[in-house]
C-alpha cells in the first residue's frame, strides 16, 4: 500500500481509549457519528461501524486494550474516514493466519480481522511479536476513487 498522498487534508483526529466493553460502545457511537457527518450511505455507515466494533474488540481482547484514532480525510472532492486501532499487546506472529476466516485465539467465531477487512476499502495490519499491533482501515465516501489510495 502506498503512503498518504501529500494532497490529502486531515481533519483533527479523535482519539478514544479501548479498555472495556463499555469503550466499545463509545467507539461504535463515535464512528457512527463520523460516518453520518461525512454522509456515508446507511450501508456504508453500518459496515464501518461493524468493522470498528470488530477491530476494537480485537484490540481489547488480544491486545489487552489500546486506543482508536479516527480521522476524516478530505482532499476537496473525495472524503474518507480513517480508523487506526493500536495496542501494545503481544503482537501477531503469523499475520496471514490471523487474517484467515475461522482462525480464532479468543473464543469468537474467528471472523474478526478477515471479516473487518471485507467491510472496508483499505486495510493495513502492522504487527511484530512483543511490539503490539496497529490496524489501519479506510472507507471512502461512495467507493474507492480511481486515482486515490491514501491509507
Amino acid at each position: 500500500m502506498t503512503t498518504t498522498g501529500p494532497d490529502t487534508h486531515r481533519g483533527s483526529p479523535t482519539c478514544l481509549p479501548i479498555r472495556s466493553d463499555m469503550d466499545l460502545m463509545w467507539i461504535r457511537q463515535e464512528v457512527r457519528r463520523l460516518a453520518t457527518e461525512v454522509q456515508f450511505s446507511l450501508v456504508q455507515q453500518t459496515k464501518l461501524v461493524t468493522a470498528a466494533s470488530e477491530l476494537a474488540r480485537n484490540t481489547l481482547v488480544h491486545g489487552g486494550g489500546g486506543h482508536m484514532e479516527a480521522t476524516v480525510l478530505h482532499d476537496g472532492v473525495h472524503t474518507a474516514v480513517r480508523l487506526v486501532f493500536a495496542d501494545c499487546g503481544p503482537g501477531i506472529a503469523d499475520v496471514d493466519q490471523a487474517m484467515s476466516d475461522g482462525y480464532t485465539s479468543g473464543g469468537g467465531l474467528g471472523l474478526g480481522l478477515g471479516g473487518a477487512r471485507r467491510l472496508v476499502h483499505e486495510f493495513r495490519l502492522e504487527s511484530q511479536p512483543g511490539r503490539g499491533t496497529t490496524i489501519t482501515v479506510l472507507m471512502w465516501h461512495g467507493g474507492v476513487p480511481p486515482t486515490r489510495q491514501a491509507l
Binding site: D7, G76, V77, H78, G142, G143, P145, P146, T147
Partner: peptide, 17 residues
Amino acid sequence: METALSDGAELINRQRQ
C-alpha cells in the same frame, strides 16, 4: 485544474450510479 478534473470524475460516477 485539479478540482475541474476530479469534478468530471465525480459526475461520471454519479451518472453511473
